[in-house]
Design a protein around this nucleic acid. Structure first.
Length: 563
DNA sequence: AGTTTCGGCGCC
DNA sequence: AAAGGGCGCCGAAACT
């Protein structure tokens, strides 16, 4: 019973399953079973389930209490493989992959659905037409062949496996939810914003601040309307081009202070206020929808509730159940450590080979101990800083860490020239935007200019006039942010495996930070599992490397106490 | 009236 | 002090 099995939901609500031989072909007959959960539950020895889409199958399994150890998500793999092959924009569904294999017309991907509170959505329509096990396995076998044809098949296999694990984890986290105390949240809102007035208008504190702003200007001003604010400043003889915080910060006018306070609280009111609570918190859990691999760099996204942007002050409402704890773990300086591992810069590897503060160590080597400058320089190198002191700092960084800077410089050059760049494991950056004609010539697939599904087109930078440079910055950041996402995904998969058999649940993941909800007596084991998973992910991803990947871990009852 | 873009800001 | 990467979300403004 061990080994891989294929699983494909059938039209009649049942499911087809088939065992795979070592060659990836069926090693036994296809069996039709009436009940999905029972089909999986009765085969506990299966090492990896091969299926079209985790989003299609796994929530239904979880709903009946069935988990699987490992899966292979054919559509996730197809997305990664197409990208690696420089074929971004081609339909990524299993049906499309099958059509390419068979030579038939390639169906376009279904349009993405918008997330509504409470609605389930996924990368692809979970209700897509069923695929027979034979067709599924034909696509799978072809994917194995394409994986073997990549420059680093071992890394690509790791990537598709990790992405598939991510899909499982996302589904499990969507089900679990982040423990959330609505009563604490409400008290917090009342403290910050004051009473709500009937009719849904601004709460008391915001109304007061708006009055203060108006008083300072000597006329009625709506602080939530940038155009109104800019005009009011102009009438007061102060020229501002926007109402951004950093620009207003240096303006000397009595309206500035209440205005900035208003903007801060307004943000909380509209994005994490009472209606947010209403929409996203049920049964003591905040349930956003996590989507693994939702960005081109491999970072996750969430739909609903702004789960990856919870303001620090609102984290006060994320509270563990009685007798339970939140283990909050944050990777220390993940991106520069990853840059050290992928560039193999001797100096940066040495610095990253210690668990102590990386920016401090960099500053001692290149910035006379000025930690702030060191941090700005490192982040500038990673993000593509192009002006001001950044360039000076970058030069200093380059002298001491030449291979590290050369690595991102080369990525930037490749991006500007429209070449492909990849993460360490092989996730591939979308190529430069091409004209419609180019796309047709290369793929044979017409791309409508006003195609409503923007997913069908390659990434384009925000402003056409700065195309090449924007692509350079994007590619520069991509190799570091994306490789960091590779590492984080492996870490997460390792952690999930280590938590098997415990009551502990993964409940939150945010780029370099993970939260596990567990009984108090499991916190030590969870903390150890996180540390171990981090080091293991470093070894698996980067092989022999002196680079360490430490975590700062806090065991707390309340998320806000973690930092 | 409905849809898309913009400005601003939250997180990493 | 201010600038560079990735996102989501909201209301207002701008459009069809």
């Amino acid at each position: 019973m061990a080994g891989r099995w294929a699983l494909a939901p059938a039209e009649d609500g049942g499911v087809d399953v088939a065992p795979l031989g070592p060659d990836g072909l069926p090693s036994g007959p296809v069996r039709r079973e009436a009940d999905l959960a029972e089909a999986v539950r009765s085969r506990p020895g299966v090492a990896r389930w091969v299926w079209r889409s985790t989003a299609e199958v796994y929530p239904r399994l979880l709903a009946t209490g069935v988990r699987v150890e490992r899966a292979y998500d054919v559509e996730a793999a197809e997305t990664l493989l197409l990208g690696h092959e420089g074929r971004y924009g081609e339909p990524r569904s299993a049906a499309a992959a099958l059509a390419r294999l068979r030579g038939g017309p390639v169906p376009p991907d279904p349009p993405q659905r918008h997330a509504d509170p409470g609605a389930q959505s996924s990368l692809f329509d979970p209700q897509a037409a069923p695929l027979s096990p034979a067709d599924l396995l034909a696509v799978y076998a072809e994917q194995q062949r394409r994986t073997d044809a990549t420059a680093h098949p071992d890394r690509m296999r790791l990537l598709t496996a990790a992405e598939s694990a991510g899909m499982l984890i996302a589904a499990e986290m969507n089900r679990a939810g982040l423990p959330w105390r609505a009563d604490v949240h409400r008290a917090l809102l009342h403290d910050l914003l004051g009473e709500r007035y009937a009719g849904g208008g601004e709460p008391r504190r915001l109304a007061e601040l708006a009055d203060e702003v108006s008083a300072a200007f000597g006329r009625r001003v709506r602080p939530d309307l940038p155009a109104d604010v800019v005009k009011a400043f102009a009438q007061a003889g102060i020229k501002v081009t926007s109402t951004r915080r950093w620009e207003l910060g240096s303006v000397d006018h009595p309206a500035v202070k209440p205005l900035l306070e208003y903007k801060k609280l307004y943000r909380i009111w509209v994005a994490h206020g009472w209606s947010w609570l209403q929409d996203w918190v049920r049964d003591g859990r905040f349930r956003p929808e996590f989507l693994a691999g939702g960005t081109v760099t491999g970072r996750w996204v969430t739909h609903g509730g702004g789960a990856l942007q919870i303001p620090k002050v609102i984290r006060r409402a994320a509270v563990a159940d009685p007798g339970w704890r939140l283990v909050v773990a944050d990777a220390d300086q993940m991106e520069p450590r990853v840059l050290a591992a992928i560039s193999r810069d001797p100096g940066l590897m040495e610095v990253a080979g210690r668990e102590s503060d990386l920016y401090q160590a960099v500053s001692e080597r290149a910035f006379s101990g000025d930690r702030d400058r060191a941090k700005i320089a490192v982040l500038g190198a990673v993000y593509g800083q192009t002006s001001g002191d950044g360039l000076k700092n970058l030069a200093a960084l380059r002298r001491r860490f030449p291979k590290a800077v050369a690595y991102v410089d080369e990525a930037a050059r490749a991006g500007e020239e429209g070449r492909l760049v990849r993460t360490w494991l092989g996730r591939t950056c979308p190529p430069a935007a091409r004209t419609t004609d180019d796309a047709v010539e290369e793929t044979g697939i017409p791309v409508a200019r006003d195609e409503p599904d923007s997913e069908a087109r390659p990434w384009v930078p925000g402003h056409a006039s700065t195309d090449a440079r924007a692509r350079g910055r994007f590619a520069r950041n991509f190799v570091v942010q994306g490789s960091a996402a590779d590492w984080a995904l492996l870490m997460l998969a390792g952690l999930r495996r280590a938590l098997t058999g415990m009551a502990a649940e993964l409940v939150f993941f945010q780029h370099d930070e993970v939260i596990v909800h567990c009984p108090e007596e499991e916190t030590e084991a969870v903390t150890a599992a996180i540390r171990e998973a981090a080091e293991q992910a470093g070894r698996i991803a980067f092989g022999q490397t002196p680079v360490r990947f430490p975590f700062t871990t806090a065991v707390v009852e309340c998320y806000a106490d973690a930092k």
